[in-house]
């Protein structure tokens, strides 16, 4: 009898520990963001001004687009390494379309190119059965080379008339619609749930009736589409395309999603909110550190240490490999 009680007590303690750890890993990103905002407001005195919040919105906008889509692939336990290169390539195509066809043509061109690239990634994995890591890496090299060959010099410029396309109101409206679509798709449709199931175990998902190939293909198509959209907004923000456009997007997406509290191994704990929260954290951190006068080497050091801390707290310690 006493042995049973002892076992129950031990189990209860373990449950409490697990619950605490889960609550901690959930709360850390929110707490982190709050601490950062308060800290930067104290350090700078003008962090929460209207103009700075608008700057943060501008800076985080394309990252938000990319990272929300990135969650769809990351939920399956994979990473789309070609996301940034795809966004850069779409940016180049959009700029060329705007210059040589018509400014309006840049929108469908960016979206279609991005989508095609995403579908090719999905095709390579589901039909050709190439490992995700290899397929995306190859695509990244191809797109980087294509971008460099399409750009003469270090950058190409979009038509000057498009400089005024990027307004706060347009970005805001688009952002709201985009977020709503992505949240609904990931949280309230079968797509999100099945992608998370795939992240836990593709075999279990298959036996549960999930069309694995179809879902993986769809995840990469969504990411590709988002890369196209991000590429279009990159063009408007940077005034054209450069060989460096999108260069850091893939790593920024991973950092943002992890900062937002999602494990890179995907699975059941995957959440679309991690992309929103993580984008906010990364952007606030970049902006606040420069405003506070720590824009040199300390910026990288602090980001590195924080990233390490978040990874340490959020990563599942199981035998699953990060990249499948």
């Amino acid at each position: 009898m006493s042995t049973n009680t002892a076992v129950r007590t031990k189990k209860s303690d373990e449950d409490k520990k697990l619950a605490f750890k889960k609550a901690l890993s959930t709360a850390i990103p929110y707490l982190g963001l709050l601490i950062l905002i308060v800290l930067f407001q104290i350090l700078t005195g003008n962090f929460l001004t209207a103009s700075n919040l608008e700057a943060i919105f501008d800076q985080g906008f394309t990252l938000l687009i990319a990272s929300m889509a990135g969650v769809f692939v990351m939920a399956t336990g994979n990473l789309d390494f070609s996301l940034g290169a795809n966004a850069g390539f779409c940016c180049v195509c959009a700029t060329l379309a705007a210059t040589y066809i018509h400014p309006i043509a840049s929108i469908p061109v960016a979206i279609i190119v991005g989508l095609i690239v995403g579908m090719v990634n999905g095709f390579a994995q589901t039909v050709l059965r190439l490992p995700s890591f290899i397929a995306c890496l190859c695509m990244m090299f191809i797109l980087t080379a294509a971008t460099q060959s399409l750009i003469t010099g270090s950058s190409i410029m979009m038509p000057v008339s498009m400089m005024f396309w990027e307004t706060f109101a347009r970005k805001l409206i688009f952002g709201i619609i985009y977020m709503a679509v992505m949240i609904v798709m990931f949280k309230y449709t079968r797509v999100g749930k099945e992608l998370k199931t795939l992240g836990v175990s593709p075999e279990a998902a298959r036996q549960s009736g999930v069309n694995v190939k179809k879902r993986i293909f769809l995840a990469y198509a969504i990411t590709g589409l988002a890369a196209g959209i991000a590429g279009f907004w990159f063009m408007l923000r940077t005034g054209g395309a450069a060989t460096t456009t999108g260069q850091t997007t893939t790593s920024d997406v991973i950092i943002a999603v992890v900062f937002g509290g999602m494990s890179v191994s995907g699975g059941a704990s995957s959440k679309i909110s991690a992309a929103i929260l993580g984008t906010l954290i990364v952007t606030v951190l970049n902006n606040g550190m420069v405003m506070a006068g720590f824009g040199g080497d300390p910026q990288q050091l602090v980001k590195g240490l924080l990233f390490l801390l978040v990874i340490a707290v959020s990563t599942k310690r199981d035998p699953n490999v990060i990249i499948k």
């Binding site: 394309t62 950058s155 990159f234 923000r237 940077t238 005034g239 450069a242 460096t244 456009t245 999108g246 260069q247 850091t248 970049n286 420069v290 824009g295 040199g296 080497d297 910026q299 990288q300």
Partner: peptide, 8 residues
């Protein structure tokens, strides 16, 4: 600000 390796 020593993080400017791309246009954005």
């Amino acid at each position: 600000d020593g993080s400017a390796v791309s246009a954005e």
